[in-house]
Amino acid sequence: MLKTQTKTVIDASHTRGWVSEPDAKRLLATAGLTVPGFTLVTDPGRIQSAAQDLGFPLAAKVVSSRILHKSDHGGVKTGITTTEELAAVFERFARLDGFEAMLVEEMVSGLELIIGGKIDDQFGPVVMLGMGGTGVEIYQDISLRMAPVGPEDVASMIKCLKGGRLLSGYRGGVVVNRDELTRTLICFSEFFMAVAEMIESIDLNPVMCSAKRCVVADARIVLPTE
């Protein structure tokens, strides 16, 4: 089921080389991961109702077949608190290269983690957990395991992160719900195993983890190049 759905989405995404964020999130939600409430806006007349449905504060992101790294192109705006602000962001996004829609999402908070997957030539599907956010490639604080992973693997992945203590409420910070994080990684690893042959790599970055839940705030599914 998931596989068929993924194949349909991927077949439709081949020309751009990656799966658009809203499509990726729909697939991940089907796989059992938690994604923020979102709506797609293509018509400025729909801005007000979108804002009312989701409730402020909101995040907005550009959906474009030409833009993979959205923040590099000014295609992300977070902490939006008024309809006017949201309308202004829409106007700006509409001028970006390849604009298709504006993704409007509820804001989620928590510790920023990255969950990823890649197909390794020697070992096949491999999953990654790391300290996330924009500094992810600077700190390179990651744990890797061959998929599929079980609860023991996840526990050892967390233990192996240098920043692992940050997950336990270091100096009054957020205490991450371990069961939810474990469930999220296991669901992700199962999803990745199921669709591995169609995909090159996946980044869920950031995954916002709090005491209640782990929410995939951004997702990038990269397809193999022929």
Binding site: W18, G116, E137, I142, E200, S201, V222
Partner: peptide, 16 residues
């Protein structure tokens, strides 16, 4: 094009 592919290099994966 992804952080995962960039950080999970062949040897890093091998060793882990």
């Amino acid at each position: 094009s992804s952080h995962t592919a960039s950080m999970a290099g062949d040897y890093e994966v091998f060793s882990a």
